[in-house]
Design a protein around this nucleic acid. Structure first.
Length: 234
DNA sequence: ATAGGGATTCTC
DNA sequence: AGAATCCCTATT
């Protein structure tokens, strides 16, 4: 991908855009997760603008999903998962790191997509500095959900933030990507979700999605089970 | 009140 | 392979 245009945080957003984005995120998690591949995640704060292309995602459901934080219903931590689609669900893990999700499904129906990896395109030097690894290869900078949050300075203060409004932290692509037919067809890797074997929940569901051939995946997809396939947008 | 554990990452 | 490290959740 060439010459990325950095959106000014104060730019006006088309009035049409928000309802479209809302519709995009209100659909089932696995569909949203797959279609988020190739879209742009951007972060703007005092230090500058950072971000990259989403290359890996995972979908999580509601009470029927034993691997989901929402499995026990709405709690203090997971309340945003039951809220409006297109908002950020940010949680702390292992007392150390933060992870970023986008809320999916209609309000009242819990769901979220974990953003697992980006290919950096904006502010890579700032991200290296924030990660404390100036020599890190570009593909490794945001290869992992907690690395993304460290590189983009995302923490609990952004929990519940609307990702469709175009400021602080936002996504570019849905639904703008629908205009470019070229990008509709892409090879997508599919596999079981990472680190949720405890629930025995990942066995049946293959809700992890990755951009085929991307050098920035958090970890490889198993060549045997994770099938390469052509995914087309509706 | 308290115990158990995690959608991770880095180092040994 | 093991630690780091805290707060959410469930249980007493």
């Amino acid at each position: 991908m060439s010459g990325v245009v950095v959106v000014d945080p104060h730019v006006e957003i088309d009035a049409d855009r928000e309802p479209l984005a809302r519709a995009f995120f209100s659909r089932p998690g696995p569909i949203v997760a797959r279609e988020l591949l190739g879209t742009l995640l951007l972060r703007s704060d005092e230090a500058g603008v950072t971000g990259g292309v989403i290359v890996e995602t995972e979908a999580y459901g509601g009470s029927d999903d034993a691997a989901s934080h929402a499995r026990a219903g709405s709690t203090r931590r997971t309340a945003t998962m039951f809220g409006p689609p297109g908002h950020a669900y940010v949680y702390r893990i292992y007392g150390l790191h933060w992870c970023l999700n986008v809320v999916t499904e209609e309000p009242g129906q819990a769901g979220a997509v974990l953003i697992r990896a980006l290919l950096p395109t904006v502010g890579s030097e700032l991200m290296r500095h924030r990660r404390g690894r100036p020599a890190d290869r570009l593909e490794r900078l945001c290869a992992g959900p907690a690395r993304i949050c460290q590189a983009l300075a995302i923490d609990g203060g952004l929990d519940g933030h609307d990702l469709t409004t175009g400021h602080r932290l936002w996504m570019v692509g849905p639904p703008a990507a629908e205009t470019s037919d070229e990008t509709r067809e892409e090879a997508v890797l599919i596999g079981p979700r990472v680190g949720v074997d405890y629930a025995g929940a990942s066995a049946a569901r293959r809700w992890r999605f990755g951009s085929s051939g991307s050098p920035a995946l958090s970890r490889p997809f198993r060549p045997g089970s994770a099938t390469d396939e052509k995914a087309k947008r509706p």
